[in-house]
Design a protein around this nucleic acid. Structure first.
Length: 534
DNA sequence: CTAGGGTTAG
């Protein structure tokens, strides 16, 4: 690329073709800023962009949400009458659809006024609607379109998957005239999302052709659900068939590991990165920082964070969040100060992390102060997540009434997390009366979640109100769902061992319990009194 | 133009 630019600069009067080539090269290297600056140079030198310039330029924007720039190009294109070529409006539709809600609306308007449409115009428009969550309209357009290719069918399959209707998705999948690797992958993803890992595996095993994407989907699917054995096994299998994870696979698998604490697999992926490349992108760096931080290896996360050549706000957020969630509130706040000193603008996620840090460090006053000054100091308007942090901060501090007042003072509708947080605080401080009131609201939002009643039953238990404990338990049973028991797992030499409560299925179970009891005795000798009443 | 991908409160 550097050489290409050097050669380009030797031309005294580059023509439109040369400019286009350079813009396309920047697009291929995901350099939107460079592409745009070449475009500006081109205009400054008095040349008029043509039918090729705009699609290339728009292509370089992918990954950005540059609504204004897309609108600007749209205006240009209309002024010069370049919409006659179908490639230009098609590229505009696609770019608009990557700019969120208002972008999709602009795309829709453009699509409606197009005199000529090809299959790509329809596919782009439908794909945009799917991204915008407008599934019903996407479906309508699919039914309306004059002809369909495999992209159309796959997009429509994605509609069913996104709608969460796995049965309808599978029926549709079977009706697709020519299924390709994308159709199969979408279906595997659908089963992963539906929690049916057996079906996901069957589909995966029966795929006529595979690439890295279905491997990634299934490994991430296992990892996300904490199925360490399956995830590691499949990752090994992938390496055995000679596939190395690309950036997409790395980021996806690391994210799944972060979500469920699979440090072992995360380390494997990290090792593979170190083996195969000498540097990595911000995306991969952030995924690594987040994975190590969430898995509890804070020092490892810090060392990667510090070694990163470039950091963006997400890098800082991941590190801050990691420190905050592991109780290192003071360290998180110190890092936040460093972030401000470096001139990085905090965003809404940063402030969630900061407030969370105050909560976990017991810094109630400091948290309140950040909350009330965040808009003035950092331009971040408090949103429902920030209120959630404050409810937790006040609630844990025993200031239940203030927490409840804050919920009522919120400008937005409190969601289930808000009420759930408050319920947790009631449990912590044994406030039965408030708990009943809070549960009332919570049930309206999450009527089928038995966890809420489990929480209430614990509150009654703490107050020794056994009649109500019984009725809460009964309510849980009648909902047909037992609270699933949690499991923990450790990995020893690439083998995963899983444990649940009262579990004696492990082959070395006797030894393990011996060790646990021994530890308990030691703790008691040191004066530790276990708290059994939760 | 379609499938996987970084940070968000219980």
């Amino acid at each position: 690329m550097g050489l290409a630019i050097k050669v380009f600069n030797q031309f005294h009067h580059p023509n439109v073709h040369l400019y286009n080539t350079l813009i396309r090269a920047h697009a291929q290297n995901s350099q939107p800023f460079s592409a745009f600056s070449v475009f500006c140079d081109m205009q400054n030198s008095g040349l008029f962009p043509d039918n090729f310039t705009y699609p290339f330029l728009l292509k370089s924007f992918s990954g950005q949400s540059w609504l204004k720039e897309v609108q600007m190009i749209h205006t240009h294109v209309e002024k010069f009458g370049l919409c006659s070529d179908i490639f230009v409006p098609n590229a505009l539709i696609d770019s608009y659809c990557k700019c969120g809600y208002s972008g999709v609306n602009a795309a829709r308007k453009l699509f409606a006024t197009m005199g000529k449409r090809d299959i790509v115009s329809w596919n782009s428009m439908i794909g945009g609607l799917v991204k915008g969550g407008e599934l019903t309209e996407a479906r309508r357009l699919f039914d309306e379109m004059p002809e369909r290719d495999s992209v159309s069918w796959n997009t429509m399959l994605d509609v069913y998957v996104k709608a969460g209707d796995i049965n309808a998705a599978f029926e549709f999948f079977e009706r697709i005239p020519e299924r390709n690797v994308v159709s199969w992958s979408t279906m595997v993803l659908g089963f992963c999302k539906a929690g049916d890992m057996d079906m996901a595996r069957i589909l995966f095993d029966n795929m006529p052709v595979k690439n890295l994407v279905p491997w990634t989907i299934l490994i991430s699917g296992y990892a996300e659900k904490g199925l360490a054995k399956e995830a590691v096994g499949l990752y090994n299998q992938m390496e055995e068939v000679g596939l190395a994870p690309d950036e997409g696979a790395i980021v996806s698998i690391l994210a799944a590991c972060a979500g469920s604490g699979l440090l072992g697999l995360g380390k494997r992926v990290h090792a593979s990165i170190r083996r195969t490349r000498n540097k990595f992108s911000i995306l991969v760096g952030n995924a690594l920082v987040d994975m190590y931080a969430k898995c509890g290896s804070l020092e490892k996360a810090f060392s990667i964070f510090n070694d990163m050549e470039k950091r963006d706000v997400v890098s800082w957020n991941a590190m801050l969040q990691g420190l905050a969630m592991h109780g290192c509130g003071e360290r998180a706040l110190h890092l936040f100060t460093r972030m401000i000193e470096k001139g990085v603008s905090p965003d809404k996620v940063t402030l969630v992390a900061v407030l969370c840090a105050c909560t976990h460090a017991g810094l109630t006053e400091k948290g309140l102060n950040y909350f009330y000054t965040m808009e003035r100091d950092y331009g971040v308007v408090p949103q429902v997540e920030h209120y959630g942090c404050m409810i937790d901060l006040l609630g844990r501090g025993g200031r239940l009434k203030e927490a409840f007042d804050l919920v009522r003072a919120m400008s937005m509708e409190p969601n289930a997390i808000i009420w759930g947080t408050l319920l947790g605080a009631c449990r912590m401080h044994n406030d039965v009366e408030l708990a009943e009131e809070v549960l009332d609201r919570l049930v309206k939002l999450e009527p089928s979640d038995p966890g809420n009643f489990s929480m209430l039953s614990n509150i009654y238990a703490a107050a020794r109100d056994w009649d109500n404990v019984a009725s809460a338990r009964l309510k849980m049973k009648s909902m047909g769902v037992e609270k699933p028991s949690g499991a923990s797992s450790i990995e020893v030499e690439n083998e995963v061992h899983e444990f649940t409560v009262f579990d004696d299925s492990h082959r070395e179970s006797d030894k393990i319990y011996q060790m646990i009891n021994g530890l308990g005795d030691h703790l008691k000798q040191e004066g530790y009194m276990p708290k059994t009443c939760y």
